[in-house]
Nucleic acid binder design. Sequence first.
DNA 1: CTGTATCCTTAAAGATACTG
DNA 2: CAGTATCTTTAAGGATACAG
Lengths: 170, 170
Amino acid sequence: MPLGTDYARQDCSLARALEIVGERWTMLILRDCFLGVRRFTDFQAHLDISRAVLSARLEALVADGLLTRTGSGHPSYELTETGIALWPAMFALLQWGDRLTTPGAPRRLYRHVGCGDLGPDGRCEACGRHPAPRDVEARPGPGADPTLRDDAVSVALRQPHRLLEPLALR
Amino acid sequence: MPLGTDYARQDCSLARALEIVGERWTMLILRDCFLGVRRFTDFQAHLDISRAVLSARLEALVADGLLTRTGSGHPSYELTETGIALWPAMFALLQWGDRLTTPGAPRRLYRHVGCGDLGPDGRCEACGRHPAPRDVEARPGPGADPTLRDDAVSVALRQPHRLLEPLALR
DNA sequence: CTGTATCCTTAAAGATACTG
DNA sequence: CAGTATCTTTAAGGATACAG
């Protein structure tokens, strides 16, 4: 939260959640984690964020237990179970944004691997379950705009890819 | 989003959603709307927010189509269908915050009216459905902290109350 | 009651340069 | 590659006073 003040005097779980993930850039960093981004430079190029801010956010996310940082030479950031548990919230928000801003043309499509596509409520249209992100594959949808960015991550995201698996960059 | 810059160069529905609901206080204002707060002064007292900021946020939410403002003398702010559609995302985030910060002791409990309690995934434990917020009743849970605030809204929230219905204030 | 208008402080974020 | 260290800009937010 900007400006020092937080939501400490709100007796509310939403306020608690937002104190952790409500800061600018934080949710987008976590989104990238779900999409398979793991390296500092890849986050930075894809988000177009300053290194200082990225560094601070990653550090906070590790301290709050949503990310692990492994490998001192070339660190890799990965979601913990706590971070992965954010998936339903992230998916719901993402779907809301999609339907609000580009009705009928989702920017990205999600599929229960080996089963069916996910509906707006996150349920697999074939089996009716809510698959865990590990069992979900993402791919560009009709609303995607490939002209917006062309960093390595954005290019890699144009191929179908399984969530939480490291992206195939080059 | 603070500091002028937005997420415009992110081809991502989550970024679009956060441009609307990602600003400081905005989600908490919407939470209050779900809980039945409708008046400027009630928002202000419950959130402990400056009037200028509250005014700006309400205006933006009306402009973005999440709230309606009715009654010029004593305006009443109410969620539109677009705003109500945010419920699954808000509930998921709220549950995540609850389980992360006070495991085993939710601050607030939600019940499918005339049916069963809601589980962490928003499904009614009795009928298995995801009830719409109009059919949900909220009440304080074991993790609630009644010492934190004692404005009129906080006091009213100590009684069971149906979502989206105006709170019984006095 | 529901705001608007100013003023002021603070800090968040970008730019840039530097380091192991 | 993965940061840290400064520096500067800007604007967000609180406080206060005023208005319809």
